[in-house]
């Protein structure tokens, strides 16, 4: 059993006395992809920020393995608008002096992502999908051990999402990077993750854990096991929404009464 790269232990966090995360514990080993899956408002982004070290938890611990290199993929691409595609990659690469053959790596990532012909372009000249691709390969350009991803495919269309997921899974298979991926999309989680933690809405709490043992390259959402998992997750989400369902009959009755007054 290999050691954990990242371990969150009993994380609790509240804002203005409102409990956002309640007793979250997860772990991530080398070469693993772990997904935190939850509906919006489940405190996913807060958990991402805590794991990335941007926010301190009220209680609990974030334990990172020694000397690991971290990188990040954000919901909306955070690119420097005044730097070209290639310079945006260099911007992060230059911070890691021990990175050897940086240019070679940069060019191969640009080619793999289809951005090579645009390496002298500025972000404003790229489409939304291209920007997100750049965001993704920037995270890979520093040869990280661990990537934190916050809804990495949220701002792109379906086709780009599938392509990006393929690209990510191919590169991950080669490099054995560990990934902590936050998402609200069960399909993304099931296709990419080895382990899925499902968060409840309102107070973020882990309510279910899935282990997916099929090799990533062979996964397909029409495959029975995966299909069932997706369905199960959707059922959980549905029941969560059911809990906070407003009684519409009551509401409309109330409104009618008001109108007649």
């Amino acid at each position: 059993m290999s050691e954990d790269l990242l371990k969150l232990q009993n994380i609790k966090k509240s804002f203005n006395n409102y409990l956002v995360l309640d007793d979250i514990s997860i772990n991530l080993k080398k070469a693993e992809i772990v997904s935190l899956l939850g509906p919006s408002g489940s405190g996913k982004t807060t958990l991402f920020r805590i794991a990335a070290g941007l926010v301190k938890p009220d209680t609990g611990q974030v334990i990172l393995a020694n000397k690991i290199r971290k990188s990040f993929v954000f919901q909306e691409p955070r690119l420097l608008p005044w730097k070209t595609v290639s310079e945006n990659l260099r911007f992060v690469q230059d911070n890691y002096s021990c990175l050897d053959r940086a240019e070679e790596l940069r060019n191969s990532l640009l080619k793999a992502s289809g951005l090579y012909d645009f390496k002298e372009s500025f972000p404003a000249e790229l489409s939304g999908g291209m920007k997100q691709r750049l965001e993704l390969i920037r995270a890979l350009a520093i040869k990280p051990d661990l990537i934190f991803m916050d809804e990495p495919f949220k701002s792109v269309d379906t086709r780009t999402r599938i392509n990006l997921m393929k690209l990510l899974s191919v590169i991950q298979a080669e490099t054995k990077i560990s990934i902590l991926m936050i998402t609200h999309n069960p399909e993304e989680a099931v296709l990419l993750a080895d382990r899925i933690y499902v968060l409840s809405d309102k107070t973020g709490k882990i309510i279910k854990k899935f282990q997916i043992n099929q090799p990533r390259s062979k996964r397909n959402i029409r495959n029975n096991d995966l299909y069932d998992t997706i369905n199960e997750i959707n059922q959980i989400f549905k029941s969560l929404i059911g809990e906070m369902d407003v009684d519409l009959t009551k509401l409309s009755g109330h409104m009618q009464k008001q109108r007649s007054e």
Partner: peptide
């Protein structure tokens, strides 16, 4: 501020 956060997370020096 999001760009600044990105730069800090990627270990950029203050001068950079």
């Amino acid at each position: 501020s999001e760009l600044l956060e990105m730069a800090i997370l990627y270990q950029s020096s203050e001068w950079k």
